[in-house]
Amino acid sequence: MTARDEILAGVRRSLGVTGHEEPRRQAVADRLARPERGVVPARGQKTGAEAIATFRKYAGAVQTSVTIVSGPEQVPAETARWLSANNLPARLRMGADARLAAMPWDATTLDVSHGPSAGTDLNGVSHAFAGVTETGSLILLSGPDNPTTINFLPDNHIVVLDSADLVPALEDVWARLRAETRSDPLPRTVNMVTGPSRSGDIDRTIFLGAHGPRALHVIVIDPDMAV
């Protein structure tokens, strides 16, 4: 008997089932076909300006800085401003995201290179798939557009978020991935990022910048400039 067969047989023996019971199979099939949303906190259930303000509040509470611009054409200048304000070199790593590529990086003095990070980049920029109002989190998908290494290796991570992609809760991210049929299979990596890296393992005190980025800056594109 293989380990697999023995373990499954053991589970069934302990539960007193055969695995062929139709009501059990139906219960599992129903649950998978129609996922239950469960309890979704009211605090993220906001729209428009209120949603952006709430996102900003929870992102700020975990040391993420947030700036709002009115259009994608302003993202390079805001990126250059933030790097300069923090005394960081004017160099930037990014993937192949078409939305980022269409922005006027040439209008700045930024030295932009493309591809995944190899561990020597100080600054990286990504485009988020979504933002989560409830926790001030960013959702990033792996792939050629926004390589996962850019989320973790550079010291400073800049993330561009379209205000139209702000959703109340993580459940809404799943709904969108299912609607876009990107949930079967999911991308290799879905990152939910809530603030810059930190650790409490030394002296039971929280310090930022353990292994991932020391700083996280979000640029929200909001055509209404509502906030």
Partner: peptide, 22 residues
């Protein structure tokens, strides 16, 4: 006591054709 940990990561299978890393 955090509302959310910093990194919650969902991993499905190995890197895909065309992926830049993983």
């Amino acid at each position: 006591g955090q509302d959310s940990s910093v990194y919650t990561t969902f991993s499905t299978g190995p890197r895909r054709a065309g992926d830049a890393d993983g």
